[in-house]
Amino acid sequence: MTQSIGARPFLRIDREKCLSCAACAAVCPPEALLLAGLDLVFEEEACTGCAECFRVCPTAALLPASGRFYREVA
């Protein structure tokens, strides 16, 4: 799920932290994050880098590829 076209992907998924809760999928405008059954799939070609998904992830399982998004999180 992480082969990238040109630019690196905007985000990474920390599979240890992800609870397949679908909060990110609910807010992703271009449907780049989807739950196939219970597996979170990221279609990076569709991602526009809007960062809505980071805001709602309850576990900080979405990590920006560069920089930081979360405060107080190692």
């Binding site: 805001r55 309850p58 405060r71």
Partner: peptide, 10 residues
Amino acid sequence: SRAERVPASV
């Protein structure tokens, strides 16, 4: 929008 980038888990 109120949690200021602190995830619910914290």
